[in-house]
């Protein structure tokens, strides 16, 4: 894992509290699972019909009837349950999932999120992302702050088609952590060694700085 991803993942795991039911998106969010404190009772949900995802199976014990939403072979933890897809999204849409940690292509200052398509390229589909961002009690987005061209992914408005309107509760990047409130976007933390000026220079969106801004610990 790159340093940037390690930093983001280690910060993201602090969003998880003991007793929560959590959905982790495909890609970088999946890595958060490895960092959850072992004394926490946290159940991870998989959209395809499992509450209680366990670690990857040991070689030879993989089961084609037991996969996660990324189609990877997995195991279950004690106390896990299986259900159908309608039930799975009843949990999600019905507000029974405490926290969703998802990746993104763009986040806008009003909390809009874009993470499902790039026009002109192949459209793969939104999968469960639109339901998750609408239904989970809290939606935390983790992503790199700028794209490979150095352009801010934290925008005034999303340039890509959105996944949900005003759905982001908190954004964690390799530079900073922001909250989305009634009054707009607020910088609440900077990553180790990152100045407010650097965050400002690499962020297209407007934001305020929290009075009690903290620098994240290494």
């Amino acid at each position: 894992m790159s340093n940037m991803r390690t930093l983001i993942v280690k910060r993201a795991v602090k969003e998880i509290e003991d007793g929560m039911n959590v959905n982790l998106g495909i890609g970088m969010p999946t890595l958060v699972a490895n960092e959850i404190p072992s004394d926490f009772n946290v159940l991870l949900q998989s959209e395809n019909g499992l509450l209680g995802i366990g670690p990857f199976p040991v070689e030879g014990e993989e089961d084609p009837d037991l996969i996660n939403a990324g189609k990877e072979t997995i195991t279950t933890v004690p106390g896990a349950s299986f259900f159908d897809s309608a039930e799975s999204f009843a949990m999600i849409r019905g507000g029974h999932i405490d926290l969703a940690i998802l990746g993104a292509m763009e986040v806008a200052e009003n909390g809009d999120l874009a993470n499902w398509m790039i026009p002109g390229k192949m459209v793969k589909g939104m999968g469960g992302a639109m339901d998750l961002v609408t239904g989970a009690k809290s939606v935390v987005i983790i992503m790199e702050h700028v794209n490979k061209y150095g352009e801010s992914k934290v925008k005034k408005t999303c340039s890509l088609p959105i996944t949900g309107q005003g759905v982001v509760s908190r954004l964690i990047t390799d530079l900073a952590v922001f909250d989305f409130t009634e009054t707009g976007m607020e910088l609440i933390e900077t990553m180790p060694g990152v100045s407010i000026e650097e965050v400002k220079s690499k962020t297209e969106a407007s934001f305020t700085v929290a009075p009690h801004l903290i620098e994240a610990s290494k």
Binding site: E47, A86, F89, R93, G128, D131, T134, G135, G164
Partner: peptide, 26 residues
């Protein structure tokens, strides 16, 4: 959206012609 698809199929089977969801608004 996956949850909407699941519910559309469930609803069809349950004799419900339509339903409202917040998923996808905007």
């Amino acid at each position: 959206p996956q949850g909407t698809l699941a519910e559309r199929i469930r609803a069809g089977g349950a004799g419900i012609p339509g339903f409202y969801t917040a998923t996808g608004v905007g």
